[in-house]
Design a binder for these strands. Sequence first.
RNA 1: GCGGGCGUGGUGAAAUUGGUAGACACGCUAGACUUAGGAUCUAGUGCCUUCGGUAUGGGGGUUCGAGUCCCUCCGCCCGCACCA
Length: 922
Amino acid sequence: MSYNITEIDQWAKAFWNENKVYEVTNDTSLPKHYVLDMFPYPSGAGLHVGHPLGYVASDIYARFKKMQGFNVLHPMGFDSFGLPTEQYAIETGIHPADATTKNIETYKKQINNIGYNYDWSREVITSDPKYYKWTQWIFLRLFDSIYCYENQKAYSISVLINHFETHGNHNNTAFTNKEVPPFSAEEWHQFSEKEKNDILMHYRLAYVDYAEVNWCEALGTVLANDEVINGKSERGGHPVVKKTMKQWFLRISAYAQRLLDNLESLEFTESLKEQQRNWIGKSQGALIDFKCNEDTIKVYTTRPDTIFGSTFVVLSPEHPLIEKITSSDFKTEVEAYQNYCKTKSDIDRQAEKKVTGQFTGAYATNPVTLQKIPVYIAEYVLMGYGTGAIMAVPAEDERDFRFAKHFEIPIVEIFDKSQITNPEIGDKKGIYINSDFLNGLEYAEAHTKIINQLIQLQVGEPKTQFRIRDAGFSRQRYWGEPMPILWKDGIAYPLPEDQLPLMNPEVDEILPTEDGSSPLARNQKWVNEIEGYTRETDTMPAFAGSSWYFLRYMDPNNEQHFVDTDLAKYWNQVDVYVGGTEHAVGHLLYSRFFTNFLYDIQLISFYEPFKRLINQGMIQGRSNFVYRSVSNPNHFISKNKITDAQQVTPLHVDVNIVENDVLDTEAFKKWRHEFANATFELEEGQYICGWEVEKMSKSKYNVVNPDHIIAKYGSDCFRMYEMFLGPIELSKPWNTAGIEGVSKFLRKFYHLFFNEAGELKITNDAPQAEELKILHKLLKKVSEDIEQFSFNTSVSAFMIAVNELNQIKCDKKGILEPLCRAIAPFAPHLAEHIWSKINPNPSSIVLASFPKFEAQFLIENEVEYPVSINGKMRLKLKFNTDADPKTIETEVLANETVQKWMEGKPLKKFIFVKGRMINIVI
RNA sequence: GCGGGCGUGGUGAAAUUGGUAGACACGCUAGACUUAGGAUCUAGUGCCUUCGGUAUGGGGGUUCGAGUCCCUCCGCCCGCACCA
């Protein structure tokens, strides 16, 4: 036993530390490569077992790129603002800052144990005032900016003020999703300071609004849309209700089109792009006016071509026009129905299977049929989408159809579906009928025609609609960035930049105040610190800091700028970003928004943060079960001894006392008191456990701590086994049993270089062609695999090479030295150790070059062809690489075995694919 | 309901992108060494069988040739959803 894993692990780590091999310089003369991991939230539980997987992959990739001569930026940090730490603080009285420091320490220890090549001198911690100073600064840039939809670009708000001062808001191209009545330049000048600021607030990219927000009572804060899953909070699964509150928002909706368009150029998985497209939710249709007495009901539809089938209009129960249009004899019923809807959440309303609704007594005019059609209100129409009003087309919409049936409203068919197979309500296809000038047409033509007609009649216009809503940016919590805003007479003023960072004040208790304000409001001295102003007490959400952290790594200690322009230009986009899919619409969308914005205001020279994204799958747990007899609760039956007659209860058993599904019965008895006197029904002397793949969790006793694996097998083995498990993007169960294969491989690898006594045994003899072939076959495979993040296959390639070299007892330095460099990205500790022994006075192998694959060593002068008869492989024949196809054909057909299989039948066709195969068709 | 992905031995998985299915491992079986083996090494291991047949969720198709392409059905996973 001469391969002393622990010793080598510790020695290598110390060596790297002492020589600072992972420090990255801003040497702009070298080609750059930026490899990034999604930084973790440092929870008290320690590093999650799923994390190392992606980190190992990016680490291998980063090391490889470095060995290829790139200047590689591969940093790590912590996303350390957030709710769990605050909850922990409330429970324990420990200040979140202290808990955070401690958790980060634990995380770092675990991370370093695995041997990643992070440059810790560039560490970014979002809750560090030196960092969040710039988060606050970027927030102020957003506050100070508006978006011009014509130029698709953000500008300083001074541009808009200028426009207002000279033109009022005529020909104003600043994006807003609010109603702003027209005003002239003169009127603008007459407005009070407050009025002016209220108007400007409708355009700012960071703005305050009174709006319905997702309020989570249990967490005491509002949540962003992406933090709400099926009406429950993402963290903790608490109920979330709608509540109208004063809130900060980011006007991400201004960037909807760009965020959508830019997706094309990104190397993200199709499913991830699809998720973002869904979230942005672009739809194209028309706004159509339905006159209702002197009022106009604006309706949004994606299918204006179906308007001839619209026989009623439905408003959302919250629609502002309802009060005006409801006829007096329906007032009571309408109010009753509105009250009924108020008691239900959006989720409940959408889940309602019953048809409900109420006639308002009012009639609207269908602008093309000119028929009077009834106006209803119904819970299935939501105020939050489109205009909160629909033109119902019962013949072509399932819900409208059921509604019409229920209330006995006429249904007008608008499609001749005789040519459609399996026609259904809602197909919206066929030849138009009952549609006046659209009759006989098909969709494309009808669509253009109706739009033109609506424009001509001045009752409608084409309209593009986005589902994405502005991002709620306020949290009524303590552990987040304080908003650098001062209030005076209802006007929000930016905190002067020289007062950044604005730090979290000390408070007596980390709890919201009685009026629902954040804990920051408990410190009234802080709130009123600046004469004549009060401070904003909301804090920013967790995504604030994580939306731009990748920029800070480039220049982490800059105190003058959030990042130096030239350095940002050099390091540029993240070339490869590795992380889980859970951030598909949250973090990844916000980061893209921030980066596009910072590009617009010319602070950085690229607009998409992440060029290529690799999603890592989850590592699941592999649970083990014992089977307790129902009739005798102290008796456990081995898995294959259970008969139908025996009733058993499966119980989770700690996977650490099970090996290859065989239970250590003695350890089991000691595991928990109640099992001390357990008896077993064994099979062949063993107790066999059942197993199942489940989420890794403490309660299922299937958690495997990476620290334990590393203590037993070493960092290199852990790294390689994680990769060997399967493709990086796949979710798969962790099964410690399989690690032996990798462990054996590493020992074999070690013993290519050293004998049993640990003495170097390599020679300087010239490598043989066969050996060179093994090496270069490996180099080809590994270099290609690394680029594609296919690490499971490169690990097998190493195994194959080592097996082959072992077979021929290769001891040539000319082969083994490059082999050592090739494995360095995967098993850096062992490689460093070997490197130090085979090179006198070596610098680190981290700085060595990756051996280059040379095709010349793979040239074969003979190819072994599989010979198939009618597509079935029957034998193999060797031929010279450049043998003439005609010669091959003659020789193959003359072959005895071939003749036997041809059974004397005539040859129909002879297929020869050079270098691949031969097929004989008879 | 719509969209996307997937389905290969007892297990994790390979398959040069249409060309020898199951590489590499785990597990299992047998043997060697050994006081011992949960160490190490050797051989075997998809299934059925004597030649051989048959196999990539089921069925069909294209092709000289299909795990790979097309159609269809089944199953699993993910995302979206009374979205107007």
